[in-house]
Design a binder for these strands. Structure first.
Lengths: 243, 243
DNA sequence: GCAAAAGTGTTCAATGTACACCCATGC
DNA sequence: GCATGGGTGTACATTGAACACTTTTGC
């Protein structure tokens, strides 16, 4: 029963079925939770499935791990294929391997999360070669998700919050130069709560990774805000994979 | 070249080789870094390999993930097979998947770490059914390790330290009743540094998960020390897998 | 001149850190 | 009675949290 369910989508004949049952090979994928900050706050990039299983449900971008690439490389590739962005923060978070998580076969997925600037991805959407239905969704209002992708996203949000408390990853979600209010809003969106402006600024400035510029945002119709950028020298001593 | 290396150990014939090259199935194992506290401090359980590759080198206990079990179950099973202990702290930590990490095939391993009481495992060694060379090794003086197991152990030690700062996992390494000095030594062994006795006691007592007993250690020839145990009610709200 | 966001300090509480002596027991 | 590990408190520094008004600009 289970055995049939597990192998029926493989179509190489009996020898492969035998291998599938008796040896311990599995399909291995990487799934990448791609975070950005947009109008509705912290959002993730989802792809609407065009095939069964879970046709029309939304899913995290993912793909099979190839034999010649390591897991980080696979995650980078999936990310690049979907978004055409490179050189972003990417971190392995957890591996999901319930035998029933994929209804048709045993698929073990190594999940990652990535942080990208909303700006960067706009570019790639313009020149995009993916005609699939791809869209951003607020992590606080997710649509129906395929497989166990709701779990994976929840896990990614938790891990992102942990990271944020420990290391300055927030700048990965911002343009090169940003205002302190931008930065604070990024923190608030990720942590999902309000922060006192004065305390936030005091804390952030004390960490010493901000570079002050003599430029000001000429955005709206209010008092211009000073622009800052992150000091790479400080950042480089931190963990995470920069691809 | 790479292709041959990757498939040569599989002996089901050309159809399987074809599958191996064109689809994305991999061998998936779990490896469990089993920690305990013994005479030399924080130690890990290692198995000496009897076959190539890495014959005679030491390795973390591991095994293939079966088709019908999830990853946690696989880790529990491997742990039970090696140590006959159950109901211990077990946590997934990281997945290693470099294509070259195993010299004969593509093996992706989901690594876990476990915390067990040195006492418990003595029992299982007595009745042990494993006649392989199995022994404890200080994490600070490791022998030659097979594959990338040195990396896996390093990662596990980092993760264990993180856990220790966040949640009271140390009691997993101690007998049910223990003295505050035992507990402090456990912390010191894991963190690899000295802690001030008064500050440690103040901090630990303020966390409120210790249950004070009216029993005293009648160990050596000095003043008897009061025994404590962990308050389960507090512990149960914490994360980690208790199997 | 007014609406709107930028910018700025102080006080208090809680937590962490440094540090030295007496106590209970076995021998 | 002495050697050994058990047990205890205080002072100071650091960090986190609460809280309100002035400044600069576009309109």
């Amino acid at each position: 029963m289970r055995y049939n369910r597990l192998v029926k989508h493989i179509d190489f004949g009996i020898v492969v079925m035998y291998m599938y049952a008796e040896t311990k090979t599995h399909e291995v994928t990487v799934d990448v939770v791609i975070f950005t900050i947009r109008d509705r706050g912290l959002e993730v990039l989802l792809v609407q499935r065009e095939q069964e299983p879970f046709k029309d449900a939304w899913a995290i971008p993912g793909g099979f791990v190839r034999m010649t690439e390591n897991l980080d490389e696979a995650a980078k590739r999936v990310l690049y294929e979907r978004t055409r962005v490179q050189n972003v923060y990417l971190e392995q978070q957890y591996t999901f391997g319930d035998p029933l998580r994929h209804p048709k076969s045993r698929v073990i997925t190594v999940s990652y999360f990535a942080l990208i600037r909303a700006d960067d991805i706009h570019l790639s959407f313009d020149t995009g070669l993916n005609v699939q239905n791809v869209d951003w969704h607020s992590v606080y209002e997710l649509p129906n998700l395929a497989f166990d992708h709701d779990q994976i996203i929840k896990h990614a949000v938790r891990k992102l919050r942990d990271r944020l408390e420990a290391t300055p990853v927030a700048f990965q979600l911002l343009p090169k130069k940003f205002t302190l209010t931008d930065l604070q809003k990024t923190y608030e969106n990720i942590l999902n709560n309000r922060i006192d402006k004065r305390n936030f600024r005091k804390k952030i400035m004390s960490l010493g990774f901000l570079l002050e510029h003599n430029e000001f945002s000429k955005s709206s119709s209010k008092r211009p805000a000073r622009l800052y950028s992150f000091n790479k020298d400080v950042i480089e001593s931190k963990k995470g994979i920069f691809i």
